Deep mutational scan, measured.
Amino acid sequence: MSIQHFRVALIPFFAAFCLPVFAHPETLVKVKDAEDQLGARVGYIELDLNSGKILESFRPEERFPMMSTFKVLLCGAVLSRVDAGQEQLGRRIHYSQNDLVEYSPVTEKHLTDGMTVRELCSAAITMSDNTAANLLLTTIGGPKELTAFLHNMGDHVTRLDRWEPELNEAIPNDERDTTMPAAMATTLRKLLTGELLTLASRQQLIDWMEADKVAGPLLRSALPAGWFIADKSGAGERGSRGIIAALGPDGKPSRIVVIYTTGSQATMDERNRQIAEIGASLIKHW
């Protein structure tokens, strides 16, 4: 067993022997301040990774656009098919120029040779490549099948209805392509620590998230040296922004954090800054 596999296998073990965790309302004060600064709703939840206990939450059962955070769930569904012998990570998928959609920095470079399922998941999570996500959605049967996968996990809230990039439209009061912070946090925890996926697939999923290259201005910008984070960000229309993450000190994750916002007129930089400040408060009061 590799060191990384050992780390993920012992996530519940280490967490069980940690000192009790206590909620700190100071972080919620910052979440509410972010709402004021952005002029928009902000949803927040913080779960203990081992027990699933909610440590703090704000608007945990209000719907927010998922945006690209759905790509972690998508690759979880792909990995479940791999575990069941219905898919192979090494299978190569070929596609054409007509398949390319807006923001496809990886797939646009491989029109000639195609990409493997493993490479597509890596591109979808680490670079948020939209064509990679659409190609992977095709392998599982489309958005409705991802929703069905989530329902089978016990998540009857999260739903995907459309493809990239239309799913980022974020129309107010439109339930399409949305989740709730509580539902997303619980589902992410199941994917990373539950028995739904094999140990190898859980490790692969967290490795992809740990290698995320496009979430630097968010929670990662607030992390002290030595902290662990595996995350996936999302951005959408109407001032929408979000991030889902597993993080913790001492090089291992111990909490799940989900943050979503929508309806702001603020710039992307300002949305990023507010999420980073929430992260800084979380870490300060850990």
Rank of each mutant, 00 (worst) to 15 (best):
Q4D: 08
Q4I: 10
R7I: 09
L10F: 09
A15L: 14
C18I: 01
L19G: 14
V21S: 10
P25N: 09
V31E: 01
Q37L: 14
Q37A: 15
G39W: 08
A40L: 05
A40Q: 09
G43F: 01
I45W: 02
L47G: 03
L47K: 04
D48Q: 08
S51Y: 08
G52R: 05
S57M: 13
E62Q: 07
P65K: 04
M66Y: 04
M66Q: 06
M66D: 00
M66P: 01
M67P: 00
T69A: 03
K71N: 00
V72F: 03
G76E: 01
V78S: 03
V78C: 05
V78I: 09
Q86L: 13
E87H: 04
E87V: 09
E87R: 02
G90Y: 12
G90Q: 11
Y95A: 04
Y95V: 08
N98Q: 15
E102P: 15
S104Q: 02
S104R: 03
K109R: 14
H110L: 08
D113L: 08
M115K: 03
R118I: 10
E119N: 08
C121N: 02
A123H: 03
A123G: 06
D129Q: 00
N134M: 04
N134I: 04
N134A: 04
L135S: 04
L136P: 00
T138V: 15
G141H: 07
L146S: 01
T147Q: 09
F149R: 07
N152T: 14
G154D: 08
H156Q: 13
R162F: 03
N168E: 04
E169A: 14
P172L: 12
E175S: 12
R176A: 08
R176S: 09
T179S: 09
T179E: 00
M180T: 15
A185D: 00
T186Y: 13
T187D: 12
L192F: 12
L192R: 01
L192C: 08
L196V: 14
L197P: 04
S201L: 06
R202H: 08
Q204V: 11
I206M: 14
K213C: 12
A215I: 03
A215M: 03
L219H: 03
R220Q: 04
S221M: 11
P224E: 06
A225I: 13
G226P: 07
W227I: 02
I229L: 07
I229T: 03
A230Q: 02
G234L: 01
G234C: 06
G234E: 01
G239C: 03
S240G: 12
R241A: 04
G242C: 06
I243P: 00
L247E: 02
P249T: 08
S254M: 14
R255W: 01
I256T: 03
V257C: 07
I259F: 07
I259C: 08
Y260D: 00
T262A: 08
G263K: 06
G263L: 06
D269M: 11
D269I: 13
E270D: 15
E270K: 13
R271Q: 10
Q274E: 13
I275N: 01
I278C: 04
A280V: 14
S281G: 08
L282C: 11
L282V: 13
I283S: 06
K284H: 10
